[in-house]
Computed example of a mutant assay.
Amino acid sequence: MRYASVSDLVNNGRAALAKGPLALVFAEDDVELDSTLRHHLDLGFKRVICLMPESFTIDPGLDDQVVRVTMDPANGAAMIDAVNRVIGAAPGQWIYYCFNAEYLFFPFCESRSIGEMLAFHSEERRDAMLSYVVDLYAADLGRNPDAVSLEEAQLDRSGYYALAREDAQNNHAPKDRQLDFYGGLRWRFEEHVPYERRKIDRIALFRAKPGLRLRPDFTFDDEEYNTYSCKWHHNLTAAVCSFRTAKALKRNPGSRDAIATFGWHNSVPFEWHSRQLLDLGLMEPGQWF
């Protein structure tokens, strides 16, 4: 299925939005676009919707599995607006959003589907899930100057931390069950990253409801959606393993020549398996076993 715009999708694509969970993949460029789409199809999303420029192409074998929506390369404001418009058109559906060269992992995703995981999460009376954006990067930038390599991907095994999220409307008191998380390339190369973009937490999975709005910092206007767990025990969290920051640092004229390698003593090969992320504490199984 193809739609000429986001407006076309929300006005005329109700069938495409009628059954979830839905995955929205925003194509900033065409790097690893096919692998991103395949990964989320394999997780069991009922609809994978790719928002991409008309000039981009995908593997013809994916045409009958992916809903394609024409959209200019996704900048922040356009992406946030598109998610909010889909929220309005798909109340009650679980929605996930990411960019190309980003890959969702959740506990035990090798043997359990996204639908099974979200059914459990819903039974715990949760309508959103905290995700950590875990930076991936190529081990050798000489062989992979764009910093992207699925075969030689690395990640940081340590260097992650959290700070209390302050409520500016309440004398900067800590918000209940909310934290700002930091780490990865945005922490190690923070001199090249604007302050407001250094956080690595993202509410990437959520249930749409009337009036809900995603904000530019990837949090929602319903504060309960931004919490990492309910009040009585820990809940599931997920990880979005992403080459996006590495790509940006190597493309930005202000940083590309200053970075010869992303490797350091805490770099380890990425195993493309949820067990590694669980062992490193980069996602939480909660009560799901």
Rank of each mutant, 00 (worst) to 15 (best):
D8S: 06
G13T: 06
A15H: 05
A16L: 00
A16E: 04
L24G: 00
A27M: 02
E28P: 01
V31S: 11
R38D: 03
H39D: 06
H40S: 07
L43G: 11
K46V: 10
I49T: 06
I49L: 12
S55G: 04
T57K: 14
P60R: 09
P60A: 05
D63P: 00
V66L: 05
V67G: 07
R68T: 15
T70S: 11
A74S: 15
V83C: 02
N84M: 02
G88Y: 08
A89T: 10
A90L: 04
Q93E: 12
W94V: 03
I95R: 08
Y97I: 01
F99Q: 09
P107F: 01
R112Y: 05
G115E: 04
G115W: 00
F120M: 02
H121D: 10
H121P: 04
D127T: 08
D127I: 02
V133Q: 06
L136W: 06
A139T: 01
D140F: 07
G142L: 11
R143I: 06
L150N: 14
E151G: 10
A153F: 09
Q154F: 14
Q154Y: 14
G159F: 07
R165C: 06
R165T: 05
H172N: 14
L179G: 08
L185K: 08
L185S: 02
R188N: 13
R188D: 03
E190G: 01
E191F: 08
P194E: 01
P194H: 13
R198Q: 08
R202I: 04
R202C: 15
I203S: 07
A204G: 14
F206D: 12
A208P: 02
K209P: 04
P210S: 13
G211C: 02
R215S: 13
P216W: 06
P216G: 03
D217C: 13
T219N: 13
D222P: 10
Y225F: 14
Y225I: 07
K231E: 14
A238C: 13
A238D: 04
C241Y: 12
T245G: 01
K247Y: 13
A248E: 15
L249D: 03
P253Y: 11
G254R: 04
S255Y: 10
A258D: 12
F262N: 11
W264D: 10
H265K: 15
N266K: 14
P269N: 01
P269E: 07
P269D: 01
L278D: 00
D279I: 00
D279A: 02
G281L: 00
G286P: 00
Q287S: 05
F289Q: 10
